[in-house]
Amino acid sequence: MSAPKNDILQGTLPLLVLKLLASNKRLHGYAITSRIHEASADLLRVEEGSLYPALHRMEQLGWLRSEWGVTEKNRQARFYSLTAKGRRQLALEEASWSKLTEGVGRVLRFA
C-alpha cells in the first residue's frame, strides 16, 4: 500500500470528527474513517488505529456519546453521536481553525 499518504495534522482530527457528526446523526468508527477519506476527495487519510483513542477521549470529555447498535449488514458496532457540549466545541474549533488558516494564509501571502 504505497498510496500517497497525507496524514491529518495533529489536533485537527477532533474538528473533523465533530464536523462529520454534526451533519450525520450517528456514525461508527469505520464510517468516520471512510467519510473523511471521501469528503476530502482522498486528500486526507486518518491513521486508522489512532482514531479510537481519540474517539474515546472525546467521549470522556463529554463531546460525544456512544451506544452499541446494528449496521445495515447486521453487524454489532459502536455508534457515536454529538452532544450539546460537542456542538459548542465544534463552533469553537471551527472559529480557531479559520483563524489559524487565515493567519497562515496571510503569512504565506505577505511574508
Binding site: 461508527h28 469505520y30 479510537y52 453487524r75 458496532a77 459502536r78
Partner: peptide, 16 residues
C-alpha cells in the same frame, strides 16, 4: 472486551 469488539468490527468492515 468492548474496545476489542469495536476494533475488530473496523477491521472486518475494511476487509469486506
Amino acid at each position: 472486551q468492548e474496545i476489542e469488539r469495536e476494533i475488530s468490527f473496523h477491521i472486518t468492515e475494511r476487509a469486506d
